[in-house]
Write a protein that binds this DNA or RNA. Structure first.
Lengths: 202, 202, 202, 202
DNA sequence: GATGAATGAGTCTTCATTCAT
DNA sequence: GATGAATGAAGACTCATTCAT
């Protein structure tokens, strides 16, 4: 299937992938549209057949990649029942993403956060959805009586996200030279820690 | 002596303060040097009598403000003996800073993180020092047998920082309109949570 | 083929020609890049598609125009055998250039000389080649026993160049209003004078 | 003598001398007023108590130094009767000036010539006087029947000046490192050459 | 659809000049 | 007179975006 299909879709993907790398290396403001075009193997003008503006590349990239990640994450988590298992798994999967696609995660983590404007004005939806994944686990655990009920999920989901995101950031900023720790090992340790804090008193 | 009201140092401070506000509102790249000058009540060229470049404003701002914050934090923490108390206090103080000086915290939190370049190339020292504050509390607690010894402080200090920083970010991004939660209340709740995870088994 | 009228090379030439006029009228430092662009009928930014910087315009102009002039001069001189005839012809041709392209000669003569920096750091090659044209005539005459052998060609080629160049300068600085003397008449007179000084004693 | 005298005049002289050096090293446009002030050991603003503008420094410098040189030259030439001897002496003295005060001569020779504007608009008088020195020798020689009468002095004085000036330029551009030839030896050789061209047929 | 040459608005920075002290 | 901190006008250059081919 999909023999010829995607000449168009394929070019768009190439641009997005090129943008991921260029944004990761130079930052959004440091990146030049012409660099993205070159990395994608298209002409400068071609970019504008697929995206309205440089901003639009970043926003689209964010929305699309986040949607993919959330979908994968939800499929994985759907196979699990136990909120504790879900929480562990969520953490491990996030760190595996960072280790596996550092450029992408750098863009999603660093460049997007870079300016209040982006977060506030453009693309809160995908991010909100991502936060909701954690929030849902929290709420499910609370409903089942496994997690403490006195923790406000809307606050704690951010705290949990922040903890993991900061670890990600550090990994990402180590640059291409460094060897990363095993995401499973680190993920399990952090999961243990967090679950201790979350567990309802017996 | 020194009656002439801070002619020199005063003008520098005005520029820094103006930069904090403009960077917070527009972001580093969105901010114009002329806007900072106007906000500071000086001519454009005057900026360059005190700073080498626009970059230098951000870096100086970061180094100086972080140094102040770290100093205050250390003075407060020095009055406490118990690592648990220190940890709670650290969290509460950080959140109080965010609530009290949201513009400054936005710049320190968001704009500086904005690009790998800034963190990596320019000013890791002040940030490292800040992380060290948390790391020291962790290590002290481990030495005293109060905190678990199987947690790597270099990883967990970042996780803790990330959790708190993320809360800060959310507060900061709510913008000037919103009413913030009480930092002491939130801080204590988060402190409870974290300490559960940290405490050594009895 | 090549029907599209010199799209690329043509635009570059237009910029160079515009620069010749603007530099001649305002001087290098008094000239604005935007004036050159306007005179060339292109946008400011277009200049930078063809030249690295304002400096680069001047340097390129110098190298290219000098190369052209030297080539023409050498072709003319190659048709002559007698060093005396060559010397006369060289002088006459130089003055004809000044009379025919005063703007260009002003830039080559005045603006480039303007600063030790340009001559020393950037483009001594084209100038050296031009001096070599005179030097070669001198040396050829000396070898053939027609010119005195006790004159150091490396000194006298500069003296000869200076004499002619100074006449050029005066012509050039008379501005657009004045009527210039006949370059052939003046050239022959100066040639006579110089040849008297150069001739070997019988 | 001159014990306290000249607090004012002395400061002005210090500024002019500083300007000579800075202009010679950096060129007029490359020189900063603050550099001249520093080199002169005065405050930036003090410059403007003695000169109307940066341009005015160059013009004043030119007028004053040229006047001094012309005066000395005329005193020396007044001791001689023979136009040939005067011509030789003029050439030698010019080259001695270059060897003795290269910075000054660089400014007078190179920087002032740099732009048509200066020559045309501001200060032709001092330069005209200098040219007149050569012109007078020529005319005197012609009147006395020693020099050919068919040479237009207004043209040849420039040619002679140009020849000597070009030699000067080369010396000046060799920079501080090089060793210069003996001005007397070179001057006599050039004088011989020129006098051959000038002498009336017997 | 694709190209990439051309555009020109936008901004950091410099530096001659001023003027309160 | 002297100072030098402050001024602010001015300009080279960049780069996202367009559009004729």
């Amino acid at each position: 299937m999909a023999s010829r299909r995607g000449s168009r879709e394929d070019k768009r993907r190439r641009i997005v992938d090129a943008a991921v790398h260029v944004f990761a290396e130079k930052g959004f403001f440091g990146a030049r549209v012409s660099e993205i075009a070159e990395a994608a193997g298209v002409a400068d003008g071609t970019i504008y057949l697929y995206f309205k503006s440089k901003d639009d590349i970043l926003i689209s990239l964010f929305e699309e990649k986040m949607a993919e990640i959330i979908k994968q994450l939800q499929e994985i988590l759907a196979t699990l029942d136990d909120p504790e298992a879900k929480m562990r798994r969520y953490i491990v999967e996030h760190l595996k993403l960072v280790a596996g696609q550092p450029h992408l995660m750098q863009v999603l983590t660093v460049e997007l956060r870079q300016s209040a404007r982006f977060i506030k004005e453009y693309s809160p939806k995908a991010f909100a959805k991502y936060l909701a994944v954690i929030g849902n686990i929290l709420e499910e655990g609370q409903k089942k009586g496994i997690f403490r009920r006195d923790l406000d999920p809307s606050v704690f989901r951010r705290a949990l996200f922040g903890a993991i995101d900061e670890i990600s950031l550090e990994w990402v900023l180590r640059g291409p030279g460094g060897t990363l720790p095993d995401p499973v090992v680190v993920g399990e340790t952090i999961g243990d820690f967090i679950l201790r804090g979350l567990r309802a008193e017996p």
